[in-house]
Design a protein around this nucleic acid. Structure first.
Lengths: 218, 218, 218, 218
DNA sequence: TATGAATGAGTGTTCATTCAT
DNA sequence: AATGAATGAACACTCATTCAT
């Protein structure tokens, strides 16, 4: 997603490139915070990974905490952006919903940092995201979208009435998120391989079924 | 769960009490790790909170890492213990399953540390839990239990056939866990109060419905 | 003294104005060094306060240390300049001396940066001022002036003989300087308001008396 | 004064000695802050000079700022203590006052750190000393002492009436303090050796004369 | 069993200064 | 003349852990 190769001097040997430098820092920070959390990540390592002078982190982001805030905000924005690109308006509601389940699952699977960043942010009681106005703004659209989809399903005669769009949304996220974030303890608790292609395929199928049964008109 | 009052000298003025000291350390550690994660928790603070000399932590647990391992292991054991105490064998399968959904939700709600500890342990790829033989052992029983419950439901004619007990289990956990662990970012993303009595009640109701629709024979 | 309004582009919109830029740097530096000392002052803040690019400081002054040296040298030159403007040759020696006491006090009071700069420079063993030839040159005049004043007083029959002009000079400075530079600890040590109009007036009166009694022929 | 040789293991090879360690830190800190001010002093160097692990500074004093506060407070307390030890009650008032002038001069001369510490503390607007209750308490006695001495002098018929004890005190301090603290710039400004034995002797003599002329009944 | 002093490696952050344009 | 990005050394401070008693 963001592994656009950000090599130094990729723009014709120039080393003084604010955009590039700050982007490289952000990418390295995302990796570090996703892997070790806010407290566990090391500023030194982020700088080294970004191939950037440590001082630049403070130049562009002010502090470790604000760097983390930016990472989290960006992660949410990227997620919403990908979601918006999903064109499901021309599909029957039931297929559109299934598409949404698949998209959510795929996004979590392909962007494992997103999940651990969200976990970290919740450990910190969302104090960074609370200040992220842009994220807050884009959320309204997103809840509205589910609301219309559900209404459309009802009109089409395939969805039952009275479903709370927020709870449907949460459930779609939950059944994918939980499986993936807890895949390590899950392998122990459930005594099963969690991440083979077959296992992943099966889980996605199960999730689709769960959601469809949840919304389907009896 | 762990609010047993562990006062110093509660056993007749004696200050040397291995059991008590180590228990007080464990309780303080649980709080600290749950609140700040493994990297964010401070050994000094744990000792101070436990009202115990810092050296004692090393005496009883060897290292911060092993203390964390013990905390996580204990948390899992406590969860399983509570679950085992749940008597659902005499209920119709459908009611038994509903009871399980309610129990899981309640446990997560009343033991918020459990959730954050599990998150932390997964951030560390379950490396501590992998060594916890007792936890591994108790899990078989627990998966078996769901398997029999599903089979019983099929026999009773209320559950559909072919459901994977592991996926059902995961789904029950997921829909409660996700809502609670992400309640801080959720309040922002879904623009809604997540933790009022009404909201919690509504979510539990939604979850019960989700699971029943998932397993019910059409 | 230095509150000449040094607004950017005050000379018809031109942004390239060596004199103005360097003057603005000097003024900001004076404030910073006076408030925080050499070690405590920040080059970044000086640049920001001067509304000037940080690089300009190095362009005009070479280093923080040389900037400080310039500030100190300028402060001394300004003091001497003000002193020279004082016309006391036509007054009776006794009144001239009193005038000098009042002038010194007023200067310290109205230019508090002068005092802290001198303190800072002494903390650094006057290593900057040692190189300031202009300052060194102007000092001879100044000691000579006191010498002639004392001689004049003796001739006029009001001053006693044998007074060392340097010690008189030092004493005049001391009794004002100490009171003002130590006004913060003084308020604690002497348990008294130091900077009210009444307190300042009283101190000046006391100082005049001290000096007159010191020089007066019995 | 405080150069009691604080060698490690001076108490029979024991290295774990809280009193000794904290005293060694304090002594090294006093030297460092006196020489470089609060901002200019280096915690690393203080630790090295004290032959102590840097961590110990934070163990005993919490922060650089609080260490500085302790140094300043101790310096004031030491000064007052020395002053109290001065027995002048049995001398004629005029001799007692002269003794006080000599004592003040000698103390400043032999404890040059005291002067620079006071300068530093005033640069910081006495924010540390403001919290030093013990210092504040001991000051009343000290002002009272001068008041009684002046009253005694009036009774003895040698001092004039109406002298403010605080201003006399300030003046006694001022004429010694200023000469010594500004000895480096003074050497340049007054073009004279300031610290030879002769110069110091002459200044003390001048100071005694200044004070006696100030208080003497005409 | 228990204590508080002590440690060394490292933590986030700041500094004056220089480079490229 | 002027700019903002970039640097590396140093900064105050913190960490989990061990030592001496």
């Amino acid at each position: 997603m963001d592994d656009v190769s950000l090599k130094k001097d990729s723009l014709g040997g120039q080393t003084r490139n604010a955009k590039l430098t700050s982007a490289r820092i952000l990418a390295a920070a995302k990796r570090a915070f996703a892997e070790h959390g806010l407290a566990g990540a090391r500023v030194d390592k982020i700088a080294a990974d970004a191939n950037v002078n440590k001082r630049m982190i403070y130049h562009y982001y002010g502090s470790k905490d604000r760097l983390f805030a930016t990472v989290v905000e960006t992660a949410y924005l990227d997620f919403r952006l990908a979601e918006e690109r999903l064109d499901i308006n021309n599909l029957p509601a039931i297929e559109a919903l299934e598409e949404l389940v698949r998209f959510t699952w795929d996004y979590f699977l392909k962007n494992p940092e997103f999940i651990t960043l969200v976990n970290s942010e919740n450990l910190h009681r969302a104090r960074h995201l609370k200040k992220a106005k842009q994220v807050i703004d884009t959320n309204r659209k997103f809840v509205d979208r589910m609301r219309s989809l559900l209404q459309r399903g009802v009109k089409e005669g395939t969805f039952r009435d009275g479903l709370d769009p927020v709870h449907v949304n949460i459930t779609i996220a939950a059944i994918g998120y939980y499986y993936l974030t807890n895949r390590f303890t899950g392998a122990i608790v459930y005594q099963r391989e969690m991440m083979t292609d077959d296992a992943l395929q099966a889980r996605l199928q199960f999730n689709v079924e769960t959601i469809l049964r949840l919304v389907r008109k009896d």
